[in-house]
Design a binder for these strands. Structure first.
Lengths: 160, 160
DNA sequence: ATAACTGCAAATCATTTGCAGATCT
DNA sequence: AGATCTGCAAATGATTTGCAGTTAT
């Protein structure tokens, strides 16, 4: 990895640690090593993850945390706006770090489980219309597209 | 209720019964009374429902079905395109009849649990764009807006 | 000192499953 | 008759919870 990217990552880690500290101070909650370890593990990598992924990675680095503590602290990090939670289908929830990214939506490739991100302003336009039509306040939305890679076979089919 | 609406409902019931029969014939599956009773209960009312709602309603009409059978047959009805399933959050899944309605999306009012439906063509436009950008095939999507009714209080706040 | 936190194991809740007996075809 | 269904109860899997012991403040 390029040196500047490493430095960038460290700077970001420092920032999110401070965000967490500020949050815990404000809420009068304790600054436990587990909380920082979980946050750092999340911000050290770039992918979506689930509770088991995180638990396994921390354990393999010899940091002992229980799944219960991870669950508890993921809720805390959500409240601190440091991560977002997704329920792609039934089964385990997925999470992603959120502090440096802007709001986006997802495509789930159902064959591989891959997750793609996109940002389309038209969703905000739809949202605005819905708010007006129903006279409501929309606080959040969830939008997922489910699909598969366009394979050669499919292209052939089209020609036929 | 107006007589023509009652007649309309009966006509529709007849249609969906036939659709189910055709499906079961095609798949070589058995025409059990439970299957028709579940279908009819669903098409007799106009709201979203969950497994417990349905179970309770059928039992209170003295039709004994197990929850397991309901689960099994809801999957079957989904496959027959007679109903759709929604996972609004964690917790119980919701279902809705689908045969006479066209595809639509939902607004969930988080305070009351109310569900509103809407149809906005711009989602299809977004879908098309995403398919082109990522070179994928999108098979389905799920879009939910979460919000609350605009209450008088909120309006007052705005003025302040 | 003491309220908050962690880790474990047990509890929960929606859904699924195994299987014995019932029932469509 | 024979394969498919149903109903029950037990199993599952993700998440939550109760609680005793630990730790940050």
């Amino acid at each position: 990895m390029h040196t500047s990217l490493v430095l960038e990552k460290e700077k970001n880690l420092k920032i999110v640690r401070q965000v967490l500290t500020a949050y815990l101070d404000e809420k009068g909650q304790r600054k436990t090593p587990e909380r920082y370890a979980i946050l750092e593990e999340i911000y050290a990598t770039d992918h979506h993850f689930n509770v088991d992924d995180l638990h396994f990675k921390m354990r393999s680095k010899n940091f002992r945390v229980s799944r219960a503590t991870i669950y508890n602290n993921l809720d805390l990090l959500i409240d601190a706006k440091l991560i977002r939670k997704h329920q792609f289908d039934k089964g385990m929830a997925h999470y992603e770090k959120s502090y440096f990214d802007r709001q986006h939506d997802h495509v789930i490739l159902t064959k591989t489980g891959e997750v793609l991100e996109f940002c389309d302003p038209r969703i905000q336009h739809i949202k605005k219309t819905i708010e007006e039509v129903f006279d409501i306040n929309i606080e959040s939305h969830s939008l997922y597209f489910y699909g598969t890679r366009q394979r050669k076979m499919d292209v052939d089919k089209k020609i036929t």
